[in-house]
């Protein structure tokens, strides 16, 4: 598969993950762009291995964590949802906004674990492999992440706005 064909096919999906990780359209765009630039240098080997998407997603997650570590304490990640969404009177929408806000307050690795486990629907082992951490760490990060969400939002099982 050519690099151009891959980008054409997967840009939208990568952008969705990037948006979930960053919570900001511009940062998500930068994250995707930086990730793809990093991949270019190794594209021939990655494509030859047969599954470039797994590698690209791994780079994307690690790039995001690296960003956060570099900017920690200096940059506050904006939340498009917070800035643009007006409170909706319906309980479901209020709950969705609350969960989104709570997500933004998680550490990047916790957030990445939740995105991989519950958005990409990967197993704990697959999540561990992508993030380069142990399965035990995935379990504890997922458990802690959900616990923090509950702390911020109350009951997570309320009906949510689609």
């Amino acid at each position: 598969m050519s690099f151009e064909a891959y980008v054409h096919a997967r840009n939208a999906a990568l952008s969705r993950i990037a948006y979930l990780l960053t919570g900001d359209h511009h940062l998500a765009e930068d994250l995707v762009q930086q990730t793809l630039m990093r991949v270019v240098g190794r594209w021939k080997r990655v494509a030859a291995a047969g599954d470039p998407d797994a590698y690209v997603r791994r780079v994307l997650y690690h790039q995001h964590i690296d960003w956060w570590k570099r900017r920690r304490g200096t940059v506050e990640v904006p939340q498009d949802g917070e800035a643009t969404s007006a409170p909706d009177p319906s309980d479901a929408v209020v709950h969705t906004v609350a969960v989104r806000r709570a997500l933004a307050r998680l550490a990047p690795r916790q957030r990445a674990v939740l995105v991989l486990r519950y958005f990409e629907d990967l197993t704990e082992a697959q999540t561990a492999e992508i993030l380069g951490i142990s399965v035990g760490t995935v379990k504890s990060q997922a458990r802690d992440g959900l616990a923090r969400l509950r702390t911020f939002t109350g009951d997570l099982t309320q009906e949510v706005a689609p």
Partner: peptide
């Protein structure tokens, strides 16, 4: 998947739907 997991999956999907394809 637990109830919490299903709930967070739904929220994540809803948030991801707001994403725009990156301009490259």
């Amino acid at each position: 998947m637990s109830a919490d997991g299903r709930s967070i999956a739904t929220v994540l999907a809803a948030v991801a739907d707001e994403a725009r394809p990156a301009r490259l």
